[in-house]
Design a protein around this nucleic acid. Structure first.
Lengths: 95, 95
DNA sequence: TCGATATATCCAAATATTTCGATATATAAA
DNA sequence: TTTATATATCGAAATATTTGGATATATCGA
């Protein structure tokens, strides 16, 4: 595990984290012990459902979130693996 | 040291890292033992001088680079402190 | 001083991202 | 089976980012 990410992927992850709503969505999901439902996210922000869906998709596309579908509900959790790999890359700059 | 970064700052740093050229500029500067001159960066990429200058400015504005001016030359080095703080923030997601 | 060089800034065009309303899709509930 | 609910996708407008040419500024060398 702890795959080495290529530059394209690093770029995508960084871009996904470069938006205030997406950061707040990540924090919200991270606070939950277990997976968080989409409707909960929509409740918390002054954004339309389609906009939230779009932001969540970007986080999923960057592999920062893992999505799970249960019937008509979707839930998400943080992909700790990918964060670990991203941090590993950043460590070359940090220390 | 190792200041806690607010969300706005995390966003700015992530955005600054969310571009292929800026990532490559960071890597280039990081590879140098000592500070890297601007002209060297310009040589390495197929981008105009003004575009490089703009990208470097964004990295400086995000505090990822420290700029030093010596006469008409400018040189840059990685701000390890800020990287460390950014990584510290990301650790809440990673493990 | 005068011309050359290094970098930064200004402006505008090209491109990408964000946002929302409308609609599609799939499932649950009546 | 019909209706309601949850989420995703499409299309278009608003906004932001990227890019390069032109120019400004500051300094070095002749």
């Amino acid at each position: 595990m702890n795959t080495k990410l290529d530059l394209k992927k690093i770029e995508k992850i960084s871009k996904a984290l470069g938006d205030p709503y997406r950061l707040k969505i990540m924090e919200l999901i991270n606070k939950e012990k277990c997976a968080l439902q989409c409707a909960t996210i929509i409740d918390k922000f002054e954004l339309s459902q389609s906009t939230i869906s779009h932001h969540v998709k970007q986080l999923i596309d960057a592999d920062l979130l893992i999505a799970e579908k249960d019937g008509r509900n979707a839930s998400y959790q943080v992909n700790k693996e990918v964060f670990a790999s991203y941090i590993k890359y950043l460590n070359s700059f940090g220390c």
